[in-house]
Structure formats: C-alpha cells, structure tokens
C-alpha cells in the first residue's frame, strides 16, 4: 500500500509562497557559490593552504547534526499528518535543539579560529568562510522563529494547520541543504 499521499494526490507541500522563497534563496546562495569558485580558480594554492586550518571533523559533525534535525522535522510533519500532535511537538522541539547545538558548535569553531588569529580579513578564503558560515547561521536563527510558529500551531487544537507545519519544515530543510553545499565547498573540496 502506498502512504497517505499517493502519486495521484500531487500537491505542493506547505504554502507555495515558501517555495518561491526557497527558489529565491537557492539562486542567491548559488551566486555566492559561483563567485567562490571563480575566485578560487585564480589562486587554488591559497585556498588549499587555508582549508588546512579548518577542522574537518567540525564540518562533518555540523552536517550530521543538521541532517538529524531535518529527520526530526520530517517526522514532525508525518506525526502532525497522523494527528499525533504530542509526538509532532516533541519532534519539532528536538529539531530546535539540534539547531541550537549547531549554532553553539559554530560559535565555538569561530572563537577557536579567532584565537588562532584567523579573522575575516586574514585572506580571501577566510572572508568567504566567515561570510558563508555567518549568513547560514543567520538563516538557522530565523529558523528558530519558524520553528516557534510551528510549536505555536501544534500546541492548541484550535490552531493546528498542517499547511503551516509543512511550510515551516520546508524552510528548515532548505537551511539543511544549503549547509550541504557550504560543507562541500569550504571543507572537503580540493
């Protein structure tokens, strides 16, 4: 048996406006990534040397934390659909907790870099590093507001809107997939 939303029931998850926003954000971040690649091509040695100062383990850990948070969020949407609202609420709080761990680990990573004397203006690579990671963390912080709206929706039987829960999830997953590229470009590409 297919799950509730079978292939026949094609529909946009959440509000279409959020998808317009996701596509806009995808294009804006793509422009950052393309400029990064263009400038990197001029001096790959500098970028490789600088990448050596990043903690690869931090990068992997950050990625895994966000993947876990997305997993919780997807389970929240599923639980809300099945009207298991207590479970959905627990899952969205776990999503937020993972987001918090991500932000704390980023702040810790930045403070480590700064104490090593690595700053925004140290070189071109580190300008990208601080810019991309900071603008991404900003999106995670906005994500906390989005998760707050989902929690607000789920708490009262009078409000519970599946569409708003899905809209919040769409935003949160976008934050996750943008990090996936940042991780590849800053930490692991050579």
């Amino acid at each position: 048996m297919k799950n509730a939303a079978g292939p026949a029931a094609q529909r946009i998850p959440g509000q279409p406006d959020m998808w317009a926003f996701v596509l806009l954000e995808a294009c804006i971040f793509s422009s950052y990534f393309i400029v990064y690649m263009l400038l990197r091509a001029r001096d790959p040695a500098l970028y490789l040397r600088s990448q050596e100062h990043l903690s690869q383990n931090f990068g992997v850990l950050n990625t895994l934390i966000l993947l876990i948070s997305s997993w919780f969020m997807a389970r929240c949407v599923q639980a809300a659909l099945e009207q298991r609202y207590d479970t959905a609420l627990r899952q969205v709080l776990l999503t937020g907790f993972c987001g918090l761990v991500f932000v704390v680990s980023k702040v810790f990573e930045w403070s480590q870099k700064i104490s090593e004397g690595i700053q925004f203006s140290s070189n071109e690579f580190f300008s990208f590093y601080y810019f991309l990671t900071a603008i991404h963390v900003l999106h995670v912080l906005i994500g906390f507001v989005v998760l707050g709206v989902v929690v607000y929706q789920l708490r009262s039987p009078l409000r519970r809107s599946q569409q708003i829960v899905e809209t919040g999830a769409t935003y949160w997953h976008m934050v996750d997939f943008l990090w996936v590229i940042i991780f590849a470009l800053l930490y692991v590409m050579r």
């Binding site: 939303a5 094609q10 998850p13 899905e166 997939f177 996936v180």
Partner: peptide
C-alpha cells in the same frame, strides 16, 4: 544529498511536476 533532501524530506516527490 540535496536531491534526496528535496525529494524525500521536503516531499517534492509528491509535488506537481
């Protein structure tokens, strides 16, 4: 990874073409 996140977690596999 992005394609899997988009199609599975974001449920785009059930979305209009």
């Amino acid at each position: 990874k992005i394609r899997v996140i988009v199609s599975e977690f974001m449920e785009v596999r059930h979305a209009p073409p």
